[in-house]
Amino acid sequence: MADHARHGEGAGRDAAPAAGQDTIELRAFMGLAELFRTRGWPVPLPVRVHPGTTGPELLRQLDIAPEQVEVVFVNGKAVSPDLAVMSGGDRVALAPPGVPGPYRVLLGFRKM
């Protein structure tokens, strides 16, 4: 089960950044947003991490299967989950397979 705070502003405009010294501010899109809703997690979700937490570590911590995530955004930059590294204070987001457009190439989701 995820180690996260049980509070948040829910729907509406983003509140002040939820990330603190040892927490990241986590968002999720498409089907993963539904997963967050099902689990009653706010958006953004503050998640406590250790410095240098990797993508696979984060997904294990959150109990999200690796095949559900194509890309992890760390501070607005897309990387494959295996290459993602994050620390407290970072803004992180999870995108599943299925993002349309050439943006999977243009945003660096897919190696050419």
């Binding site: 968002r27 899109f29 498409m30 089907g31 947003a33 955004f73 607005g76 930059k77 897309a78 987001a93 995108a95 599943p96 397979p97 299925g98 993002v99 349309p100 457009g101 943006y103 999977r104 945003l107």
Partner: peptide
Amino acid sequence: PVTGQGLPKYGTNVLVNILNEA
């Protein structure tokens, strides 16, 4: 997954959050 799941479920508007994040 794009044409089989992403677009039918959310339409092209799924890009708002993605581009905002990027």
